[in-house]
Amino acid sequence: MPAFLNQLPIGLSIGAVLLLIALGLTFTFGQMGVINMAHGEFIMAGAYTAFLLGDLLAALPVAFLVAGVMGLVLERAAIRHFYRRPLDTLLLTWGVSLVLQQLARDLFGAPNVQVPAPSWLAGGVGILPYNRLFIMGLAVAGVVAVWVYLTRTKLGRRTQAVVQNRQLAATSGIDTGRVDMLTFFIGSGLAGVAGVALTLIGPVGPALGTYYIVDAFLVVVAGGLGQLRGAVLAAIALGLLNSYAEFWSDASLAKVIVFAVVIAFLQVRPQGLFVLRSRVLT
């Protein structure tokens, strides 16, 4: 029984990391129709930032900035020429992803590196280790911050408007190009924060992002594009499913189970958990 319960914080913290990653993806995909495979490398960049700085708390804002600026540069330099052509963005960003991974190999070497966890995160309460709690806290803070941004700030309301109807937003006087840049910056920055969180539960390597990017896309698709609530629920569900499937079988069978469940779910609800509904769209 305790072993069974021990999976709970593991599943929840994986879900929390997936959520931080998916928050960025769900908006770049939902708002701009971009399938950004290089999003995983922003996670990796965040993790290496933590490795270089060696200080968890300092790494959080710096990783946000580093990954955010990388996202911004990618958007301005390449992706914006491919808006509304999802398949082309997939190829483009996959290439960028491979380049960035090789760059990391050249800079930091191919072997994994370990980031020492701060002493104040050792131990835990009951079945909940402090490091896993910290990751869950990060995800909660990330969701609250994104929610406040979207609903309480001018720029966030403009972001919502662009997600809901890009053309109408443009003809309402909104500079959609600027909104796109900002969304990319924030989404990529959150992936950097997720990378910092990952240093608490495992080693850091050049391919770190590739382990999470596919699961994060599953969260986006299952939760519904551009849907905050959907991303939260889908991330928690997938995190728990992942860890319990692994607990009862093994790592590779667990992946099969997760994929099978997501495919079955999408047969029933092809639009994901939540959909934008309006008379305009019917």
Binding site: R158, Q160, A161, Q167, T171, L276, R279
Partner: peptide, 22 residues
């Protein structure tokens, strides 16, 4: 534009505010 378009999740006031700000 055609088809009485609006931003469906925003309130009526929200729709007006976003445009007035932009």
């Amino acid at each position: 534009p055609q088809g009485h378009q609006c931003f469906p999740t925003l309130s009526v006031l929200g729709n007006l505010l976003i445009t007035v700000e932009a």
